[in-house]
């Protein structure tokens, strides 16, 4: 019930404080949630990926996340500096369904907030909840170290409830990944992101220079 009430609050808040105000609120909540979940340290990628699979990392709050270990990200020297991860089901999907069967339709503010975020921050949101969700991941990544190096999260692609997709082509270029391949991942997953070591010199970035 809390989630359905929250969506009602988003509509209320967007009418009172504007969609920009809602984005600011969501961004702060994303930061605060990540901060309150604390820091984590892993000796290497295998131990992090095992922790993720067993639901022990802060990322596990999102639900079933798969580490696509066949999709390693390498730096200019060919060393593995990260992996691609995929969320099976959008965290907002149960709420969307519950609203569909109890209220009827999502309030207009849901798409208004997403549109404003896409225009003013980054073109990666399919619904209002992407704002907090993506911020949360970025902040959590900064709180986790793998082999004593802090992580960085890159949003790559996501699919909304009615099938709309967002593909972050610039981010994909940086890690040297084909957008069509990521699009095919969206058939089985709702959200795809990369976790990599902060400051790694990626092949795509080197090519750009």
């Amino acid at each position: 019930m809390l989630d359905v009430a929250l969506v009602s609050l988003i509509q209320d808040m967007s009418e009172k404080a504007g969609v920009e105000g809602t984005i600011q609120y969501w961004t702060r909540v994303g930061e605060s949630l990540a901060k309150r979940m604390g820091k984590e340290a892993y000796i290497g990628w295998p131990s992090f990926n095992v922790a993720l699979r067993e639901g022990r990392t802060a990322f596990s709050i999102e639900g079933e996340v798969s580490a696509l270990t066949d999709l390693a990200i390498t730096d200019e020297d060919g060393d593995v500096v990260g992996y691609i991860y995929a969320l099976k089901r959008c965290v907002f999907q149960p709420t969307t369904l519950r609203i569909r069967y109890s209220v009827g339709e999502l309030p207009k503010a849901d798409q208004d907030v997403a549109r404003e975020y896409n225009n003013s921050v980054r073109d990666t949101a399919v619904c209002n909840f992407c704002v907090i969700h993506q911020k949360f991941r970025e902040e959590v990544a900064g709180n986790i170290t793998v082999a004593e190096q802090a992580l960085e999260c890159m949003q790559l692609a996501n699919r909304g409830f009615i099938g709309e997709t967002k593909i972050a082509e610039n981010a994909l270029k940086k890690i040297g990944m084909n957008p069509e391949y990521v699009r095919s991942l969206l058939r089985n997953y709702s959200c795809v992101y990369a976790l990599l070591m902060r400051g790694a010199r990626l092949k795509g970035e080197v090519k750009d220079k």
Binding site: L2, D3, A5, L6, L9, Y25, W26, R28, V29, G30, S32, L33, R36, I61, E62, G63, V91, F92, Q93, P94, T95, L97, R98, Y101, F129, I132, H133, F136
Partner: peptide, 17 residues
């Protein structure tokens, strides 16, 4: 429909904010 913990916890923090 199962709840998602992320949305629920975020809702509480939203209210705290």
């Amino acid at each position: 429909i199962e709840d998602n913990p992320f949305v629920d916890v975020a809702a509480f923090l939203f209210l705290e904010d």
